[in-house]
Simulated scan of single mutants.
Amino acid sequence: MKMEDIAKLANVSKSAVSIALSGKPGISEDTRTRILKIVKDSGYLPRSMIKADKFYSLTKTLRFVACTNSGIVLEQYYKQPFFMELIHHIEEQCRVRGYSLFFSSVTTDHLEDAMETMETEHESNGIILLGTNLTPEQIQLIAKKQPNLVVLDTCLETLNMNFIVMNNVMGAYQAGRYLLELGHKKIGYVQSNSRMYNFDSRKRGFLQALEEDKLTVDTAHYFEVSPTVVTAQHEFIHKITELRDDLPTALFCECDYIAISVIKALNELGIRVPQDISIVGFDNIQESTIISPELTTVHVEKGTIAELAVSKLLDMIEHGDTVKIKSLIDTQLVIRKSCSPVTVKETDAAAL
């Protein structure tokens, strides 16, 4: 590939390519970044590239690593709304700081070999790891390959590493208190059939809210479903049908996908939301405003998580920061239309 080819791909002049490669001023940073990315992807490396690499390092890349499994982080995780929104914010934070972001998806079964291959073929300056459902040993293995590491979506307090996660306990506690304020006492809990740090923390926060009013979730009002589908799930429908004479008046769902699935199942059964059962979710994905009724949920500050992750990583890369952090990002309850106060019609709803 020649310099003229680079210019055509970047839609700039040949002189702009020359300026980008020499590291001299005269073009915008966006243009320079675009040109250098094309140069790197094409393998074109003229002698002048030494200067460009020195001043506008082509190795200014961060890697986003997702370890897929059969439970929470699916192979096409990037299509799941929560992860899709989070990745968008991370990409934007990298862009404004002059870094490229590479995506790598590996299965947990071949983690060590995959990490070795990734960092050998294209070494990154640092890694943002989607730590959902990973063990301490798996996270430590990745840290050995790349010590500039920030882990998202989980928090292991005993590891000397950087973790950034939403305040799951607080969010679920907020949801629980809201349902109690609406007068609900017979509250059910819809949990994921795959467990992880976030879900376990949410369960703890929700039960804490109920305990303050000396309430608990009845054993019959615990439900278990898949957290990665948004269709009505047979297991939930079957159990709700069996409880027709003893329905809870409200349900807390461990994530929005579960909440949307639950609303669809209840609609199929002719059980009205929120008139018969109020529903609260967690994550505030975009789909929560599309479902009918719009979902009351816990908002997660995905943009703040992304900003902190990239900033911490760059502090390590550019300034040699060695202090490790465990950051909890507080949540906010978003009240929409899927919840209503308990009324005198509660007994009528239980008799449906």
Results as ranks from 00 to 15, higher is better:
Glu254Phe: 12
His89Tyr: 13
Pro341Gln: 11
Thr289Phe: 10
Leu266Thr: 05
Met166Tyr: 06
Val298Leu: 12
Thr108Gly: 02
Ala309Thr: 02
Glu242Arg: 14
Lys214Arg: 08
Ala232Ile: 12
Ile260Asp: 04
Leu308Met: 14
Val96Asn: 07
Ser105Tyr: 06
Lys24His: 13
Asn11Lys: 13
Val190Asp: 04
Ile35His: 01
Thr68Ile: 15
Ser22Gly: 10
Leu74Arg: 10
Pro25Asp: 11
Pro227Ile: 10
Ser261Ala: 14
Glu91Cys: 13
Leu210Val: 09
Ser261His: 02
Phe163Leu: 02
Leu86Gly: 05
Ala250Lys: 03
Arg32Tyr: 05
Asp321Val: 06
Asp113Gln: 02
Gly270Trp: 11
Leu156Lys: 14
Leu210Met: 04
Gly43Ile: 12
Glu116Ser: 15
Glu242Ala: 15
Lys326Ser: 10
Phe252Ala: 06
Lys312Leu: 07
Glu268Arg: 15
Gly43Tyr: 03
Asp330Trp: 04
Ser201Thr: 07
His234Gly: 01
Asp348Gly: 13
Asn69Pro: 05
Glu235Leu: 07
Phe82Ser: 06
Pro147Ser: 11
Gly126Ala: 04
Asp153Glu: 14
Ile187Tyr: 00
Pro274Val: 11
Thr135Leu: 07
Tyr44Phe: 14
His299Asn: 14
Asp321Asn: 14
Lys54Trp: 00
Leu156Asp: 04
Ala350Leu: 11
Leu86Phe: 03
Leu141Pro: 02
Ala265Asp: 09
Leu58Ala: 05
Asp200Met: 14
Phe282Ile: 02
Leu152Thr: 02
Asn148Ser: 03
Lys214Pro: 00
Asp153Gly: 10
Leu62Val: 09
Gln191Asp: 12
Asp213Pro: 04
Asn133Glu: 14
Ile285Gly: 08
Leu352Gly: 08
Cys155Gln: 15
Ile72Asp: 14
Ala349Ser: 15
Leu130His: 09
Asp213Val: 03
Leu215Arg: 07
Leu58Gln: 11
Glu254Arg: 00
Ser15Tyr: 06
Asp245Trp: 02
Gln80Asp: 15
Glu254Trp: 07
Lys40Gly: 00
Asp321Tyr: 08
His234Arg: 13
Thr322Phe: 09
Leu180Pro: 07
Val298Cys: 10
Asn167Phe: 13
